[in-house]
Simulated scan of single mutants.
Amino acid sequence: MNLGHRAVPVVATSLVVALLGSTPADAFGGSDTRGEAEGNQISASAKHSRIRVTQVSGPTGGKQGSLSSTDVNWKPPPCWYEPVFSPEQLKTFSENEGDGDVGLRTSWYGTELWTDHFRDEKDANNIFRAPSTVKGYKNYNLGKDGYFWRGVAPDVFNLDDTSLCTRLMFWQDAGTIPDDPNAPTPKTLAEYAYNKVKVPSTEIEVKPAAKSTVNLPTWVWLDKGTFKDVKVRAELPDTGLWAETTAKPVALHLDPGTADAMTYPGSGNCTINDDGSIGTPYTKGDADKTPPCGISYLRATDGSPYRLKASITWQITWQGSDGTNGDLPDGTFDTTQDMNVQEIQAVNR
């Protein structure tokens, strides 16, 4: 299928899939240099954001993982607008490439479509929102200080939510943010960074470690300093916008992996102590004591170990470049480890 100079409205997931084999890879986020956007690089794909996320503080080594929100109804923003091209960049792209996304649901293939609208002042159609006709630009606005903005969505196949950001690429003067309900804000960046936060995957300390005994408490703890706050910074180039999102460990929840067990405390929620530790380390002579954080198994394992799951709850807060701040839903990260449990053997004489 030869698309030639065509404007392709992306109106359904099936259409996107059908076009993948016959359109330039970068138009839908391919693997070449134009299909990825990091920092100040440009991209022809509306699924690539220029937001830069860097870790400011917290552990960086060892195993790490992403948080799961405790609020099942919370979602990060589905789309927003951000600067994509300077006038010079758009001129180069339009006259040499000309294949890619001019809007979140509209792709133009062929340099003529780009040059007609952005160089030669010809109006363009936008079938997804009013006004349906967008006035053209003269010579890419060369000489003006600003950027062309476009809708961006991490999940371009989420057609319901991404309908919010379907304007064709538009001009915005430097130092200003579009007057649009889906323009980016520090909160947008903070929510975007939520899934970029990487927390450490550290196994809890248990005693006895290798094999527990029925009805005897298993002590669980984490030494102070094992878990520290993790802070990431999200910045959107050419806007002055940034946000720092901080994840603070606040609790440990124990799930023994079987109904035949008791947790200490009964809720299974072990709070973090003032010094950053959780629970109390087991010492010799504590076997018959009740641990502040732990488990008692009531039935022995039979060939297959119990899977003890430890879930750390992380409290998420953020602050932004304009002085705004707030809370995001708590996040959790789970680790599991095998627990073998034996019966006490007694000999009658």
Rank of each mutant, 00 (worst) to 15 (best):
N325K: 15
N340M: 11
A25R: 15
D322E: 15
S321T: 09
D330R: 01
K228V: 11
W74V: 06
P265L: 13
W314F: 01
T335D: 08
Q64A: 02
D99L: 10
T246S: 14
E121A: 14
V56H: 01
S86A: 15
V220M: 12
G136I: 06
S94H: 03
Y297V: 01
D173W: 07
V232A: 02
G103T: 07
G39Y: 05
F28A: 07
A124G: 01
C79N: 01
T280L: 10
R105G: 00
V72Y: 01
V197R: 05
S277A: 07
A46D: 05
T176Y: 07
T176E: 14
G225E: 09
T335E: 08
V250Y: 12
K228C: 05
R129A: 02
G21E: 06
T324V: 00
S14R: 13
R349C: 07
T166A: 01
D173Y: 02
S311V: 08
P265M: 12
T23Q: 11
A12Y: 04
L168V: 13
I42E: 01
I295W: 00
A261N: 09
R233K: 15
P83L: 02
K248M: 07
N139Y: 05
P256G: 12
L164V: 00
A18W: 03
T226F: 02
S277M: 04
K196L: 01
P83A: 08
G110T: 13
D116T: 11
T115S: 11
L67D: 00
K187Y: 01
P281L: 11
E88M: 04
F85Q: 13
Q345D: 03
V56M: 03
T245P: 01
I51P: 00
E36S: 14
P9N: 15
G240R: 08
F85T: 13
R150H: 00
T185E: 12
G320S: 10
